[in-house]
């Protein structure tokens, strides 16, 4: 069967949806994202990327792959390698068997990414669906069209080191998935998402947003490092994997699909409300970017207040969602 590439908003949910669809499952990117309870928030100041804290808007890497596989009654084989040559040999072997193979890679070393988007982020996901000469045929879900990548470049991207180092990780389904999602998986996944957002931990969920808001409120507007901190926050949110608004829209799309499978729970109404929350995340990003650009004066307490308002809205939303399902 020839492989069909499909564009997506997020790398891991897009990769897993493309891969399971190739194996005959009826799965969209939003269904994968929601069924794996991928929506989240974590402010991890002790993990630093170029000196700035990690702000994650989603579950940890591989959670989407594992969660989606479970919802479709399969699981994945994950393989890591100590040496690039072994990693490449195994990839070639699986391709020769006709497998489409998922990889975790760095973004920085993938030459088909535009120069301006190449940062050292190690938890990118893509599929390899063939090889022609020295080039691997790549389905990168954040790209509109299939890509090609030379073997040496792909090896470098797979074996990049540092935070979240992929160590050559490749994955493929251990056996064929179900054609349709197990509908009993949906309500528990929704409850898990709501509980993640409402977690009683200071760095996670809406409390994590409040901790981050407190950190922002303490930024000194005269300090040259304050503007990059706020810019970084927006970049984590909107540009890299479409965190804030993008993930709310993606989750709203999931709630619409879930509504068709779990009628009578009012999920379509929740989807509509989440779209509005997503729009407010966009307003937040816009206000922050205007300060970064110097169109408005840098006002950390104002940014912090907007973030607290988002935390309050999401707290109300997820409490209601938890009661409904």
């Amino acid at each position: 069967m020839t492989f069909q590439h499909q564009h997506a908003a997020h790398c891991e949910s897009g990769t897993i949806a493309n891969l399971l669809r190739h194996h005959g499952a009826q799965v969209s990117e939003p269904l994968a994202f929601g069924a794996s309870a991928a929506l989240g928030f974590a402010y991890l100041p002790f993990i630093r990327l170029n000196g700035l804290p990690l702000i994650a808007y989603r579950a940890q890497p591989r959670a989407i792959i594992k969660g989606t596989a479970a919802a479709f009654g399969t699981r994945f084989r994950f393989e890591r390698f100590s040496r690039p040559a072994e990693g490449q040999r195994r990839l070639d072997e699986l391709l020769a068997q006709g497998q489409v193979v998922g990889l975790q890679t760095s973004v920085f070393w993938l030459p088909y990414f535009p120069e301006t988007m190449r940062f050292h982020f190690n938890a990118h996901n893509l599929l390899v669906y063939g090889k022609e000469g020295d080039d691997y045929l790549i389905s990168d879900p954040v790209a509109e069209d299939p890509q090609r990548c030379a073997a040496a470049d792909l090896a470098r991207a797979r074996f990049a080191r540092g935070v979240l180092a992929p160590r050559g990780l490749l994955y493929y389904p251990a056996h064929a998935p179900r054609a349709e999602i197990d509908p009993t998986r949906l309500a528990p996944a929704i409850r898990k998402t709501a509980r993640n957002l409402l977690a009683p931990l200071p760095l996670i969920g809406v409390r994590g947003m409040r901790t981050l808001a407190a950190r922002i409120a303490r930024l000194d507007p005269r300090d040259a490092r304050s503007s990059p901190f706020i810019g970084h926050l927006v970049r984590m949110q909107e540009e890299i994997g479409t965190g804030g608004a993008g993930f709310r829209f993606l989750y709203a799309a999931f709630l619409q699909e879930a509504d068709a499978r779990l009628p009578g729970q009012g999920l379509a109404g929740f989807a509509a409300e989440l779209m509005e929350i997503g729009d407010a995340w966009r307003d937040f990003a816009l206000a922050a970017a205007r300060m970064v650009k110097g169109r408005d004066a840098l006002d950390p307490p104002a940014i912090a207040a907007l973030l607290r308002a988002q935390a309050a809205r999401e707290e109300t939303f997820f409490r209601a969602l938890l009661r409904a399902v």
């Binding site: 939003p30 535009p114 301006t116 988007m117 509109e144 829209f249 619409q256 989807a271 779209m275």
Partner: peptide, 18 residues
């Protein structure tokens, strides 16, 4: 910064679907 690429985003169509 997108270098001519386009990114995928979810939005609501006229029928209210994402």
């Amino acid at each position: 910064t997108l270098g001519g690429h386009r990114k995928g985003v979810y939005a609501r169509d006229a029928a209210g679907r994402m």
